[in-house]
Simulated assay, not measured.
Amino acid sequence: MKKNIFAIILISILFSCKDNKETKAVNNTVIVKDTVVETAENEVVVEEEEFKKDFAILLPRTYRTYNDVNEAASLNEKWLELYEENGQYYLGKAKFKIENGYDECVGDSTKSISPENKALIFIENPELKTGKIKSLKIDKNKIWPGEKHSFTFNSQTYTLRGEGKVLSEEKVSTDDDKTEIYKKVENYKLYLTAGSTEKLLLKEASFNDTFVELLFAGDIDGDGKLDFIFGANRDYEEERVILFLSSKAENGNAVKKVSEIAVQFDC
Rank of each mutant, 00 (worst) to 15 (best):
V212S: 05
A249S: 05
S168W: 08
S12V: 11
E84Y: 02
S150R: 10
V45F: 04
S150T: 14
K184V: 08
T174W: 12
N42T: 07
K178Y: 14
K95M: 08
I13V: 13
A262V: 02
V212Y: 04
G131E: 03
N141F: 04
W144V: 06
D34N: 15
I242A: 01
M1L: 14
A40P: 08
D223A: 07
L10A: 12
D68G: 06
F51C: 09
G87V: 00
I229C: 00
N208Q: 13
K142N: 12
G131P: 07
L75Q: 01
K78G: 09
S135D: 06
T62D: 08
E163C: 03
P60D: 00
E50Q: 14
A40H: 13
G101F: 12
D177W: 12
G101E: 01
L215F: 13
L58Q: 04
V69T: 14
S109Y: 11
N42E: 12
D68N: 13
D68V: 09
I133Q: 00
N67R: 15
N187K: 10
A194W: 00
W79L: 02
K78N: 14
T23L: 15
V30T: 07
E22A: 15
Y83K: 07
E239G: 09
K203C: 01
A205R: 15
D209G: 10
L128Y: 03
I242Q: 04
D221S: 05
V241K: 05
S135V: 01
K78T: 05
L160V: 00
E41G: 12
S259R: 01
I138M: 05
L192K: 00
Y66T: 09
G218F: 00
V172N: 11
G252S: 01
C105F: 14
K140W: 06
K52F: 11
G146C: 06
K52E: 13
V26T: 15
N125T: 02
A254G: 03
D221Q: 06
K95F: 09
